[in-house]
């Protein structure tokens, strides 16, 4: 076991963990605040990857692709929330059926438009290549993911802690009735939260795309990962989602590197271990919102 190996694996863990945070933060908001089970969440991620692929092919710009794909996906999600989700708040099983239906629809639309051949999302030119860190070679792009992940976590933290919207979000997690009792249009906020969640999923998709690639089935893989992160961290807490992401990042990286035989199980073993010790996740509250 060499030092360089350890350095690389630690960097791997952090970049993978922050990638997980990018893709789970939105689900954490939707799940935690609205209490809506959104099984189409992975589809938002997948749509993000494919749409950005289309924009890059047209314009060649990664930034345009990021903004364009994320905006388009959040618009789609707003329509979905206003027309459908809104009708079934508090009906969890119908949410499962509805969002699963949407997952089917999005998956087939992607297959229709892009076909079944796996594609890859090119990295931005300035982030290609690798650099040497104390003799260990590490891809530049992953360092960028670490940077953006921390930045986004900070921005989200500021929104939740320092803005009016954040105050309402936190109050909403604790007590929905109280918030609407104060005369705040909670419906509007719900739509905004849902769209913000979708926006984050699409951003995660575009940033993660150069690592994951674009293929059918990406949606369900991401969904399971995101659900795992959110549940391990505890519902409705961004801090929890952050902790959960980093924990899974380390567990998966070191688990796969040193116990590759158990690679299929590491994430589930982690989940069981956490939930056995803390039945409501690391930072979850005792009662559901």
């Amino acid at each position: 076991m060499e030092v360089t190996q350890i350095i690389i694996q630690v960097l791997n863990s952090i970049s993978y963990g922050l990638l997980l945070f990018l893709l789970a933060a939105g689900l954490s908001l939707i799940f935690g605040l609205m209490g809506v089970i959104n099984l189409a969440y992975g589809s938002f991620f997948m749509l993000g990857v494919y749409l950005s692929l289309a924009v890059i092919e047209q314009t060649g710009s990664f930034i345009l692709a990021l903004l364009g794909a994320a905006t388009a996906v959040s618009l789609v999600s707003m329509v979905m929330e206003v027309c459908f989700i809104r009708k079934i708040y508090n009906r969890e099983l119908d949410q499962v059926l509805l969002t699963f239906g949407f997952a089917y629809i999005f998956m087939d639309i992607v297959r229709w438009c892009w076909g079944g051949t796996p594609q890859s999302l090119p990295k931005p030119v300035m982030l290609q290549g690798s650099i040497s860190i104390l003799g260990a070679i590490f891809p530049v792009y992953r360092l960028a993911v670490i940077f953006v992940g921390i930045l986004l976590a900070l921005v989200l933290w500021l929104i939740v802690e320092k803005t009016r919207m954040g105050v309402i979000i936190k109050a909403g997690v604790d007590d929905k009735e109280m918030v609407s009792g104060l005369g705040i249009n909670i419906r509007l906020y719900f739509t905004l939260i849902f769209a913000l969640g979708a926006f984050l999923a699409a951003v995660g998709g575009v940033l993660g795309g150069p690592i994951t690639g674009a293929y059918l089935g990406l949606d369900s893989e991401i969904l399971v990962l995101a659900l795992a992160v959110v549940v391990i961290g505890g519902l409705g807490t961004l801090k929890g989602a952050f902790l959960g992401s980093v924990l899974i990042g380390f567990m998966e990286t070191f688990g796969n590197a040193f116990f590759p035989n158990y690679a299929m199980m590491t994430i589930y073993i982690t989940m069981v271990a956490v939930l056995v010790l803390k039945p409501n996740g690391l930072l979850g509250k005792d009662e559901r919102p």
Partner: peptide, 17 residues
């Protein structure tokens, strides 16, 4: 011999080994 799980997203941990 290294056998990553089918459909591994991130080969980083394996490649470093």
């Amino acid at each position: 011999e290294i056998y990553p799980k089918l459909g591994t997203t991130d080969y980083g941990p394996y490649l470093a080994q």
